[in-house]
């Protein structure tokens, strides 16, 4: 895989998940959680901008972040399928977020030591945000797991009823 493809993947993950979370704005279970979700969405869109700008720079074909974000067909996106999963209810959203955050946080920490200074810079900046995202979604997974039989079941993979 080329560096361009790899950086594009990172940007697409953040862009799609950021958009998914942004769609929840105004629908949070309580206003505090609503603001938290919007903050995380903004963090991810901000991260996507950095990766997509860098991807355009690496490609060297004159495409900028907007070209890459808005002028590609859906088949050309390289995000993980996880981030495309529907928002569903709060349990679905949090389970998806936790799985993504746990991976994303570890990945960004490792990429902060990249030999490519540009990759390392974007990763280091985003890692700080990802650490908070993981503590937020991880807190919810634990809380729901410790909650009612229903919330425990949902965190264990049982479907909504």
């Amino acid at each position: 895989m080329s560096l361009f493809d790899y950086v594009l993947r990172l940007g697409d993950n953040a862009l799609i998940l950021g958009q998914q979370l942004a769609a929840l704005t105004g629908h949070g279970p309580v206003i505090e959680e609503d603001i938290a979700t919007a903050n995380i969405a903004l963090d991810l869109v901000g991260e996507a901008r950095l990766w997509l700008s860098l991807a355009g720079e690496i490609e060297g074909a004159g495409r900028d972040e907007d070209d890459l974000a808005f002028l590609r067909d859906e088949i050309d996106f390289r995000n993980l399928l996880l981030v495309e999963r529907p928002n569903g209810d709060f349990a679905d959203t949090m389970a998806r977020q936790f799985l993504f955050d746990a991976w994303h946080e570890a990945l960004l920490e490792a990429l902060s030591a990249s030999t490519d200074a540009r990759v390392a810079a974007v990763a280091a900046k985003s890692w700080k945000e990802a650490r908070y995202h993981l503590s937020h979604s991880g807190g919810w997974v634990i809380r729901l797991g410790d909650g009612t039989d229903y919330s425990h079941g949902r965190m264990s993979g049982r479907p909504a009823s």
Binding site: V30, E32, E33, I35, A36, N39, H136, R143
Partner: peptide, 18 residues
């Protein structure tokens, strides 16, 4: 509003230190 102190700190971070 928050269920516990940890959530209250997280919420305060998101609501009041943006």
């Amino acid at each position: 509003r928050a269920a516990d102190a940890e959530m209250a700190i997280g919420n305060a971070r998101d609501v009041y230190t943006r």
